[in-house]
C-alpha cells in the first residue's frame, strides 16, 4: 500500500506515456495533452506551495524560539506576506501595481546584483583555473579569451576576432556541447528507465 501501489502507478503510467508517443490516434493525443501537459504543472503548483509552507513553518519556529539571527527569518516572513497580500485578487492580482513595484525595486535589483557579484568571484576563480600550466588549461584559457574579446571594439582586429570567436563557437564548441548533450540525454533516459522499472526508489524517502 505504501510502496507497491506508487511503484505500480509509475510503471503503468511510465510505459503508457512511452507507448502513446508512437500512437498518432486522437485519443492518444488528447490523453497526452490532458495528462502530460496539464496535470504536472497543476501538481507542481501544490508542490511549490508545500515548499512555501515549509519555509513559513521554519521561519516562524526560528522567530518563536529566538534562534540565532531570528530577525532575518522575520524579514523573510514580512517579504512573503507583503508580496502575497499585494497579489490578492482584491488588490489587482498579478497585475497589481504593488506587485510590479516589489518586482521592479526589490526582486530585480537583488537578483541582478547577486549575479553581478559573480563577476568578481569568477575573476579570482579564473586566475586559479586559467594559469596555462598544461595544454588543456591553455586550450580552456584561449577559448575563453577568444569568446570574451569578441565583445570588445579593437579597431582593425574587431572583424578577425569576431570571425575567430564565431568559428570556435560554431565548430569545436558545438562538438563539445553535442557530446555533453548526448551524454545528458542517455543519462536522462537511463534514469527514467530505472524509475519506471522501480530500480531507483530514493524519491520515496523512508517509511
Amino acid at each position: 500500500m505504501k510502496r507497491q501501489i506508487p511503484l505500480t502507478i509509475i510503471f503503468i503510467l511510465g510505459l503508457f506515456m512511452v507507448f502513446q508517443y508512437f500512437v498518432p490516434h486522437e485519443t492518444s493525443e488528447f490523453l497526452y495533452e490532458f495528462i502530460a501537459l496539464d496535470w504536472p504543472p497543476i501538481i507542481g503548483v501544490f508542490a511549490l506551495a508545500l515548499g512555501i509552507i515549509s519555509l513559513v513553518r521554519v521561519s516562524i519556529k526560528r522567530v518563536r524560539t529566538r534562534d540565532e539571527n531570528w530577525q532575518y527569518a522575520l524579514v523573510t516572513l514580512i517579504g512573503l506576506a507583503a508580496m502575497l497580500t499585494a497579489g490578492l485578487p482584491w488588490f489587482g492580482g498579478q497585475t497589481s501595481p504593488v506587485v510590479q513595484w516589489q518586482f521592479d525595486f526589490i526582486m530585480r535589483p537583488i537578483t541582478a546584483t547577486m549575479f553581478s557579484l559573480l563577476a568578481f568571484f569568477i575573476a579570482s576563480a579564473a586566475y586559479r583555473a586559467f594559469r596555462a600550466r598544461s595544454v588543456l588549461a591553455t586550450l580552456l584559457l584561449l577559448s575563453a579569451v577568444i569568446v570574451m574579446i569578441r565583445f570588445f571594439p579593437m579597431g582593425p582586429f574587431t572583424e578577425p576576432a569576431a570571425a575567430t570567436a564565431d568559428w570556435v563557437l560554431n565548430y569545436p564548441n558545438l562538438a563539445a556541447k553535442r557530446a555533453i548533450l548526448i551524454g545528458v540525454g542517455l543519462g536522462i533516459v537511463s534514469t527514467a528507465l530505472k524509475i519506471i522499472l522501480g530500480v531507483e526508489r530514493s524519491y520515496m524517502g523512508r517509511d
Binding site: 505504501k2 506508487p6 509509475i10 503503468i12 548526448i182 540525454g185 542517455l186 536522462i188 527514467a192 519506471i196
Partner: peptide, 25 residues
Amino acid sequence: SRYPLAFYLGIATGVAIPLEMKAKV
C-alpha cells in the same frame, strides 16, 4: 504524498524517454 509523486514521476519519465532520446541523442 507518494501517490501524487508517483503520478508526476510516471508521466515525466514516460514522456522524457522518447522526447529526450529524439532531441538530445
